[in-house]
Nucleic acid binder design. Structure first.
Lengths: 214, 214
DNA sequence: GTCTATAAAATGATAGAC
DNA sequence: GTCTATCATTTTATAGAC
């Protein structure tokens, strides 16, 4: 039984746009940009297809809005979670992984559209090129900061480590989204503990210890 | 200047099918299953769209044929490369990475379609579910074999290591396919050397040493 | 083995009424 | 803000000639 569509129901602009972004995120996560039709998204929202295009002028604008909104939301959450602490990069990464583990649909959205966006003609091509550069830079800075605090082996190249960590996260996410799913957080924790074992000559300042369970 | 289409030119079945698989592999690598049209592939081959469908009855059969053929080809190559040696799992993995580094279009085909295939309705969904299970099993067996030979730390769980190694490869491939590309083989070698350092208490029997250059 | 012709459906987008 | 109507294209697939 599909939810009835209340035709012509007028909603405030912001609210409707939120609905649309949520529905579009689901659809793009399942079938990517090319595999998703505007009619598909419109149906999920309970609105006509031209009604959808009233809020986002075309398909490209829609997917970009989805990706950017989700990115902003995540940044805010992570900033907030560690507002007063001084987490090690390892703690920060595990928190990110555990956050992701609670949001498979979001992970899937980025896994699917990132691969699709390798095509230079893809509407999110530039978005993902910049996104990966940005995340790599942020991660390298955190690693370098931990090196200065003696928490990470100083012999390592921050940018190289950042590249590797991102690869592990992306790759584990893909296998986690498959059947049977791998235990993403357990594998990531094991990886991080092996990786950071060398440089742990100082206790985390304001953070908690990395625990083996959870 | 686009290559002229010689209309109606009759080619032997096998040869034409090879052409089609090659063109389809390119197209699917660039835009995935949903983003590729049969007309697109047909044009690349220099054949009409119904002419294409004469050789593969529908789009799903085409992409499955592409993926399976490429997998077979790779298996043959890897078996052949190490026919007489007894490579360590690390040597075997580096050879695989270096092979991939020479075939970006093939890597892209698998990166793009694997993510797309997370959708249970995708024509290659089952193919990739099985593929990942199979590769994980093969890799775990090689790791276990190396453990018995004292080449890899016996404390490690082969299946867990296999999962992690596959994640690193997949993740590095994605970043390698982006701009600017990361140095996939260098990052993979650094990862493997850190990973295998613990268990190297025996010299590889018939294999060569892992070198820092290449 | 390949083509032209064609069908039937889906898709992204616009015009204009309410 | 939402709809119906409509368009121009594209897309997968089939029929039948050569």
């Amino acid at each position: 039984m599909v939810a009835e569509r209340i035709e012509g129901l007028r909603l405030p602009r912001t609210q409707r746009r939120q609905q649309i972004l949520a529905a579009a995120a689901q659809a793009f996560a399942e079938t990517g940009f090319h595999g998703t039709s505007l009619a598909d998204v419109a149906t999920r929202v309970g609105v006509s297809q031209p009604g959808l295009l009233h809020h986002y002028p075309n398909k490209q604008a829609l997917i970009l809005a989805v990706l950017e909104e989700r990115d902003d939301e995540d940044s805010r959450y992570l900033d907030e979670t560690f507002r007063d602490g001084d987490p090690t990069v390892v703690e920060w990464l595990m928190a990110l992984c555990e956050l992701n583990a609670r949001r498979p649909e979001l992970v899937r959205l980025y896994t699917v559209t990132a691969a699709e966006s390798l095509d230079p003609a893809h509407p999110a091509h530039e978005f993902f090129q910049h996104r990966y550069q940005r995340i790599r830079r942020i991660m390298a800075e955190r690693i370098a900061a931990d090196q200065r605090k003696g928490r990470v082996d100083r012999a390592l190249d921050p940018e190289h480590v950042a590249t590797e960590v991102m690869a592990v996260m992306d790759g584990l996410q893909l296998q986690w989204l498959m059947r049977p799913p791998v235990d993403m957080c357990a594998r990531f924790r094991a990886y991080l503990e092996r990786w950071s074992a060398g440089g742990e000559d100082a206790a985390p300042a304001g953070g908690r210890r990395l625990s083996a369970d959870a």
